[in-house]
């Protein structure tokens, strides 16, 4: 009796281990560890222990919360902290515009938009199972971010700097690894690199958050950047994994509701190029 129950539990654990999305789990774990330092910094700035937890749940946008706590902790005005936070979060507007149809309708959409962040958006954009990846990553971060903050608030000054473990390199590496398949496409790479240069150049002169928006100016140069590439069908190449595209070339001609932007980013639950590469590796 006990034996069967134990083996049942073991099977259950094994099936969780098999079904759990390890890539997303790793990203959420990293977010959680970062959040421990966020919670610690918040209480060190004199905020009550529940504050970073509640804020983490309601705002759910890490960099803006760090900034908010930093400004308030340094004795800045709360209004300035709100404005700076909103500026940092302004990138969620273009995210929402580019997000594939993963939210669904009704109440799901009202909850789903709250789960929008860098990680969930990049998973949704680059994976075959866009909707599932978006929601899994979104919920994972909704869980890990406030929990990490609670832990950090409890530990307080005992928390060591997560940068010691290179966690600050992890976030850009996560986003980079996920968008690289899209960047193999020249049409996407040129404006992306120009945008990156613009953003970095603006960092010393613009307030936080705005350099990212400034990167979108690269889109204005799109016709110029892609001159000479016009005739090249963007999907006629091979996938990033070297797997030959199962799709007939030229997504524009495909009658499916599968669209591929010039960026090579998969729209819908398509089997497009970027998605094929990430999807296959994602569940490895």
């Amino acid at each position: 009796m006990t034996n069967t129950r134990e083996s049942f539990i073991l099977d259950y654990v094994r099936s969780i281990w098999r079904t759990v999305d390890r890539d997303i789990a790793l990203v959420c774990l990293a977010v959680g560890v970062t959040s421990v330092s966020y919670g610690a910094i918040a209480v060190a700035s004199g905020l009550p222990f529940w504050f970073p937890v509640v804020m983490g749940t309601l705002v759910l946008a890490g960099s803006s919360e760090f900034l908010f706590v930093g400004i308030v902790g340094a004795g800045g005005s709360p209004i300035a902290a709100v404005l700076a936070g909103l500026l940092v979060n302004s990138r969620h507007l273009p995210y929402g515009l580019a997000l594939p149809d993963v939210l669904g309708g009704g109440w799901r959409r009202w909850l789903g938009v709250h789960l929008m962040n860098d990680e969930s958006v990049v998973f949704a954009l680059t994976r075959k199972d866009a909707a599932r990846s978006y929601w899994t990553c979104g919920f994972g971060i909704l869980l890990c971010w406030p929990l990490g903050a609670l832990l950090g608030a409890g530990l307080g000054s005992a928390v060591s700097d997560p940068n010691t473990f290179g966690l600050d390199a992890m976030f850009p590496a996560v986003i980079l690894a996920l968008i690289l398949p899209s960047l193999r496409d020249t049409r996407a790479r040129r404006p992306a690199l120009l945008g990156a240069v613009i953003a970095v150049a603006c960092v010393p002169v613009l307030p936080v958050g705005l350099p990212l928006l400034a990167s979108l100016a690269a889109l204005a140069a799109l016709p110029l950047l892609n001159r000479g590439l016009r005739t090249e069908a963007p999907t006629a190449e091979q996938g990033p994994t070297g797997v030959v595209e199962q799709e007939p070339q030229g997504s524009a001609g495909v009658a499916e509701q599968e669209r591929q932007g010039p960026a090579g980013v998969v729209e819908r639950e398509g089997r497009g190029r970027a998605g094929a590469g990430m999807g296959e590796r994602g569940q490895a």
């Binding site: 990138r91 273009p94 995210y95 515009l97 580019a98 997000l99 860098d118 958006v121 990049v122 954009l125 600050d168 390199a169 976030f171 850009p172 986003i175 980079l176 968008i179 899209s182 960047l183 996407a188 404006p191 992306a192 690199l193 945008g195 990156a196 240069v197 613009i198 953003a199 970095v200 960092v203 350099p211 990212l212 990167s215 979108l216 690269a218 889109l219 799109l222 669209r259 932007g261 010039p262 960026a263 090579g264 980013v265 729209e267």
Partner: peptide, 17 residues
């Protein structure tokens, strides 16, 4: 709009790195 996401995310990588 589709292209903007990749531009934005690449800029985010550059700025945070």
């Amino acid at each position: 709009l589709d292209a903007s996401a990749v531009v934005l995310l690449t800029a985010l990588v550059a700025v945070t790195a």
